[in-house]
Amino acid sequence: MSFLEKIPRLDRRVLYLLVAIAAVVPMFTPLGLPIPTSREVEGLFDYIEELGPGSTVLVAFDFDPQTVGENGPQASGVLRHCFERDVNVLITALSQNAPGMAQEMIETAAAEYDKVNGVDFCYLGYQPYPAIVIMSIGQNFRIPFPQDFYGTPLDSIPLMRAKQNYDDIDLVVSVAAGWVAESWVTYAKERYGCDVALAVTAVQAAQYYTFWNAQQIVGLLPGLKGAAEYQAMMKGAGMSYTDAPLRGMDVQSIEHLLIIAFIVVGNVGFFAERARQRREAAAARAERRGER
């Protein structure tokens, strides 16, 4: 058996080791390659840029710890951008393990920008059954959230006193890792006419280009790449930014090259193996003919 034919039998742990090396090494040697921005990410960034101080954006944490690597930088970027532009923020956490992550991220960002709870932002917290919550907000915030996460009645919160439903907010940004993103489009956008943007895991993003084409969303952040583009735009606009997603894209570059190499090598092995099988089959046929 030749070297090429042995390729398909390579131990999986060798592949894993290569993936691990490709994830670690670029962390120490940043490539610093420029990150080109895309229209769908610019859509959300420009929308928030155009909102004046005092406008309101609802940022929905619709993800669990499983996808924090992708959704975390997205949520953090959008929150910081809103605070940077003095846009008020309402936050919901409709995924069952999201409230703790949302709380940590909001409190960190708020401290950084000197934002006051109840005045500049309001954390509404968790309620089960996202689709029902999204529909209920269309009637009144007080149906699903009689109090905010900290237990303060909504009518006692200065920011919330005059806010009844979607009519009183400018945009919903769903940072999501599941079908909840679609519920925001279906109910908040189509039923109640509120503008929606999606910041979703890359796995989901491919299918949401159809919402983007149909102008059902004002912007789309696909995975870590979307978060990195967003941070690059914040950096370009002179705002403070986090470089974790930007550095992450260096690793992403190397890993993608590695996986493409795996595909190429895997196919070389596949064709070598197929050629060998064909040779053997032809030899066997010739042998049978000889016996006859």
Partner: peptide, 14 residues
Amino acid sequence: FTVMARISLLIGRV
């Protein structure tokens, strides 16, 4: 896009 998603999660942990 799925490849990108999975790698992103690994980057987060690294």
